[in-house]
Amino acid sequence: MSLASGPGRARTDTAHLPDDLRLYIDKHVMYIQSLDRRKDELEYWLTEHLRLSGLYWGLTALHLLGQPDALPRDEIIDFVISCMHDNGGFGAAPGHDAHMLYTVSGVQILAMLDAFEDFEQRVQDGKRKIGHFISNFQNRDTGTFAGDEWGETDTRFLYGALNALSLLGMLHLVDVTKAVEHVDSCANFDGGYGTGPGAESHAGQIFTCVGALTIAGRLDLVDRDKLGAWLSERQLPNGGLNGRPEKLEDVCYSWWVVSSLAMIGRLHWIDKEKLATFILRCQDPELGGIADRPGDMVDVFHTVFGIAGLSLIGYPGLQEVDPVYCMPKSITQRILAG
């Protein structure tokens, strides 16, 4: 899965939008399928350190677009397994160090492909190994999680750990209460959350903190009105959302902000129609793909978060997305019920 940007570019003719502004579903499916045919480009290889997450982004987008089989299942499973280390962690690509973020992507891909059994058949004791890799990164005194052996902690890693472990049915391997206490200590005076205690509120980190609290069943700790006010303040007059005050809008915040609002039951505090119009303006109508803002190069990261954002606000023709996991709701429901 290529994370290289382009080749397409989002439309720039924003002054006079056609009445039938729509989501180019077929084009986006073709775009994602085409990404893997770009191996003759250097940028494809320069983004190798993100590859497994890229695959997760592309696959999620395809599922939400209603084309879950548009990428070859067996090849994806082969690739995921080739990224796995003996210690149970996954690197972004073969030969890259194991890291929490790619381990989570690996688990999410296997979950989406309903492939835990295939995985277990090919990697003996595989799920248990992953569970231990993840749980070993928790600091049992503070509840935080590191992303790798170097020990830097970040609420992203904590969320990733709870996300993957809940999908694996292995939350009991970690101290969820301590993790919750840590997230709570990251709440800022403005109602938001950052990477750690005292770090600036950032919509992406708010998603991870609210997501972690949702998985832990502790949303009661969130001041929903205060956080919702801060999140809804992210919408700019052009309909797009930014991630922090006084920053530019970006399609990826259509996911981080809106999913957080959905989790705290405040989704209607943004203007959905204006947001949909903004996201749709960021499409490349010819070659598919979505960019961060109109006129910029498209890429798979903004493509999935644009589509997931549209799904959250109920745009017609898309599968429903789970705001906690950024995966199809039908899949998370099946897994979490089992």
């Binding site: 899965m1 893997d36 191996k39 190798e48 590859r51 695959l55 990428l71 070859p72 090849e75 994806i76 082969d78 690739f79 397994i81 080739s82 690509a93 073969p94 030969g95």
Partner: peptide
């Protein structure tokens, strides 16, 4: 690089 298959995805 070993991508783990004859016609790997990457």
């Amino acid at each position: 690089q070993d991508d783990g298959g004859p016609n790997p995805l990457a």
